[in-house]
Computed example of a mutant assay.
Amino acid sequence: MFLKRMVVCVLVGWLSMAAALAAQPTKSLDFIENRGQWDSRVRYAANLHQGGYFWRATD
């Protein structure tokens, strides 16, 4: 009986945590215009969790 209750509690906790994480809003990328703070080839940049994204002009 104890084991059954423990399994149910763990499952309910896991499902609650999964539901809470799924309800988090997704984060969008905010692009920043280059106004001289980066290399002149870079038009826009966005900060990512583990780095950055740079959008360069193509000639």
Score class of each variant (00 low, 15 high):
residue 23 A to W: 09
residue 43 R to L: 11
residue 16 S to I: 02
residue 57 A to W: 09
residue 47 N to E: 09
residue 9 C to W: 12
residue 58 T to M: 05
residue 5 R to Q: 12
residue 47 N to L: 01
residue 3 L to I: 03
residue 11 L to E: 06
residue 42 V to A: 09
residue 47 N to Q: 03
residue 23 A to V: 03
residue 56 R to Y: 04
residue 59 D to K: 07
residue 4 K to Q: 04
residue 45 A to C: 04
residue 10 V to F: 01
residue 38 W to C: 10
residue 16 S to W: 09
residue 13 G to S: 13
residue 1 M to Q: 08
residue 31 F to N: 00
residue 12 V to E: 06
residue 18 A to S: 14
residue 33 E to A: 11
residue 14 W to C: 12
residue 39 D to L: 10
residue 23 A to Q: 08
residue 45 A to Q: 10
residue 48 L to P: 00
residue 59 D to Q: 04
residue 2 F to T: 10
residue 15 L to C: 11
residue 34 N to C: 05
residue 41 R to L: 12
residue 7 V to D: 07
residue 8 V to I: 15
residue 37 Q to A: 12
residue 49 H to L: 03
residue 41 R to K: 14
residue 50 Q to V: 06
residue 55 W to C: 02
residue 29 L to E: 02
residue 34 N to E: 05
residue 58 T to H: 12
residue 32 I to K: 05
residue 27 K to C: 03
residue 21 L to I: 02
residue 54 F to N: 11
residue 42 V to H: 00
residue 31 F to G: 01
residue 27 K to D: 13
residue 41 R to H: 08
residue 23 A to T: 03
residue 48 L to S: 05
residue 52 G to L: 11
residue 57 A to I: 12
residue 5 R to A: 07
residue 27 K to P: 04
residue 16 S to D: 06
residue 51 G to M: 06
residue 30 D to W: 00
residue 57 A to M: 01
residue 30 D to C: 03
residue 29 L to T: 02
residue 49 H to I: 05
residue 15 L to T: 10
residue 3 L to G: 01
residue 58 T to Q: 14
residue 37 Q to C: 01
residue 48 L to C: 07
residue 38 W to F: 14
residue 32 I to W: 04
residue 42 V to E: 04
residue 13 G to D: 04
residue 4 K to A: 15
residue 12 V to N: 08
residue 47 N to K: 03
residue 59 D to Y: 07
residue 21 L to V: 13
residue 5 R to N: 15
residue 2 F to L: 09
residue 11 L to P: 00
residue 53 Y to Q: 14
residue 43 R to S: 11
residue 50 Q to E: 10
residue 14 W to N: 03
residue 13 G to N: 03
residue 8 V to G: 00
residue 44 Y to D: 11
residue 6 M to K: 15
residue 27 K to V: 07
residue 21 L to G: 11
residue 8 V to S: 15
residue 48 L to I: 08
residue 53 Y to K: 09
